[in-house]
Design a protein around this nucleic acid. Structure first.
Lengths: 198, 198
DNA sequence: AAGTAAGGTCAACGATCGTTAGCAAACGCC
DNA sequence: GGCGTTTGCTAACGATCGTTGACCTTACTT
């Protein structure tokens, strides 16, 4: 009850412990991203951060709260209203895949790796779709009645690339040249957008 | 060492225990499919099968061996050589998704749910691609130099639907009418096939 | 009916997990 | 310079996991 009934980061800590707290957060992000929620142990995070396991509990309350803290990351909303219609597919593909290609999406990787067995994480992915992907598309195609379904199909193509290339590292998907990949996936997304349903 | 150095199902068991062995296998398939490898406990499998946990070890040696036994399922190879070129996309989509739609792919679900955190399972998925998907496509398009890359892209589209619709149950993907889905995905696969790379 | 091999249960093992309590050292403030 | 707060560690708890071995019990063989 020391933490769960508090709103913010619970009891405020001194500035002196900031490096340690940051090291724990960084280690947690890396571990969750590469191993998923369940296989990641608090002890391994602490070891990576160079502190005792008890420190993790001290600063973040619980493993679940720490996971929540790592997934609080700024996903910059995409503005597609200024993009020419026929370029939206490729632009969308590039924006979606570039963070993964740079290895700059630890929080997202953790989320997707955990989602398959962790309903809470799956719900978080759903929330991401509803608040990021769908609004951006709705803004760009305000008069398309099938835009939600199209968004679902587009998302499935993106999800497949993410899971296959970055999480499972399946061949030949994992070795594809990035620019070729963006072009092909972009063409597919555009194809979904351009074709009416039924 | 009672089991690991034996080739077949280890020591042969009497026919009298067949119902129990089958009950354990069925329960394991269901549990692995819905929860993944790591979150599935031997005790829960035993409880579902109505026997003691020790029976699981007795008949299957270890949890890992039991998992291997559940993934030994007949995936009927697809023959696309007699299908008209322009129908291959939809035919392929239907054949890939129908078992999932019927809830008849417990072994596949277990495999995919475990693959994200279990390298062995990911390797099994890779093997599935190499032995099932690629040969079928190579037979149908023997003179396409980019067929491997195209197969990778097609697989990513299929994988995205499987993960999004059947494993994560993301909306609107999960609620889509199956025939509409097959048509759209089939069109996408066909699109991948028809377009030359670069 | 007796004897034997297989089916099955039960309790416990060692390991590992998240988490907690208690105590030593380091720092900032008066 | 002394004192209280914060940082950090060590040790342990309780739960759960896969796995094992000792022990009944059922059913088939002769």
């Amino acid at each position: 009850m020391t933490h769960s009934d508090v709103r913010g980061p619970a009891p405020r800590f001194s500035e002196r412990s900031a490096p340690t707290r940051q090291a724990i957060l960084d280690a947690a992000r890396a571990r969750f991203a590469s191993d998923g929620y369940d296989k990641t142990t608090v002890r391994s995070i602490a070891a990576d951060a160079g502190v005792a396991a008890a420190m993790v509990m001290r600063y973040y309350g619980s493993k679940a709260d720490l996971f929540a803290a790592t997934t609080r990351a700024g996903f910059t909303a995409l503005d597609l209203t200024q993009v020419p219609r026929h370029e939206i597919g490729e632009r969308f593909a590039r924006a979606s895949l570039e963070p993964w290609e740079r290895g700059d999406s630890a929080a997202m990787a953790a989320l997707h790796r955990s989602a398959v067995t962790h309903p809470d994480a799956a719900a978080a992915v759903q929330r991401l779709i509803d608040t990021q992907l769908l609004p951006a598309l709705k803004d760009a195609f305000p008069d398309d009645p099938d835009i939600e379904v199209k968004a679902g199909l587009m998302h499935s193509q993106g999800l497949g690339v993410i899971v296959g290339r970055y999480l499972l590292r399946l061949e030949p998907l994992a070795s594809l040249d990035f620019e070729d990949l963006v072009r092909s996936v972009g063409r597919t997304l555009q194809h979904h957008l351009d074709h009416p349903m039924r």
